[in-house]
């Protein structure tokens, strides 16, 4: 649904742009393609790698590892999986629900969701192209630390 809206708006703006100036529109499309091609190799590798990683991990084992009483180890595993993998939201949230139903703790799940969204280990090669190595490391380390705060607060309030 959302993607239809985005495609529609983009198409509309593209037509308007084309009417306004053919030359500028071509320039915009050229820039769009060049930026896209710039991250394409990393993107393909990332998507293949993450597919492999998730296929190798099995949901029952994960639920057990992330259980209510899994303590520090569970937190470490949750944050490691969340940080490394890159899972689309429409897969991640239902997975989180499934893990909760299988006995995973709320703190662990909040940590998993938060690191999944904010920390990107596999996307590091793409991020550092734009922000440089130092800032990329700092941003990810801070986001990693912050995810523990988020999860801790959520565990205390909702748990």
């Amino acid at each position: 649904m959302y993607s239809i809206v985005i495609y529609f708006i983009t198409g509309l703006l593209l037509v308007i742009s084309l009417i306004a100036s053919r030359k500028k529109t071509l320039m915009a499309l050229k820039k769009a393609w060049r930026s896209f091609e710039g991250i394409l190799p990393e993107l393909i590798a990332i998507l293949l790698f993450v597919g492999l990683l998730i296929a190798l991990l099995n949901p029952e084992t994960i639920s057990q590892l992330l259980g209510e009483s899994s303590g520090v180890l569970g937190l470490l595993i949750a944050s490691a999986i969340g940080s490394i993998t890159l899972i689309p939201g429409f897969v991640a949230f239902p997975t989180a629900v499934m893990l909760l139903n299988n006995g995973a703790g709320i703190t662990q799940i909040a940590l998993f969701i938060s690191t999944l969204m904010m920390v990107g280990v596999v996307t590091f090669p793409v991020e550092k192209k734009y922000f440089g190595i130092r800032l990329t490391i700092m941003r990810n380390v801070m986001a990693f630390g912050f995810s523990f705060i988020v999860a801790g607060l959520m565990g205390v309030i909702l748990g």
């Binding site: 993607s3 769009a32 393609w33 896209f36 296929a55 890159l86 689309p88």
Partner: peptide, 28 residues
């Protein structure tokens, strides 16, 4: 693994191409 990669790839296709075109238009 391939089916998971496939669904991530679809997610990418559903939003990334228009984002880059919007980006080009914004820039110009």
């Amino acid at each position: 693994a391939l089916s998971i990669t496939g669904s991530s790839f679809l997610e990418m296709l559903s939003v990334i191409p228009p984002i880059f075109i919007l980006l080009g238009l914004l820039d110009v």
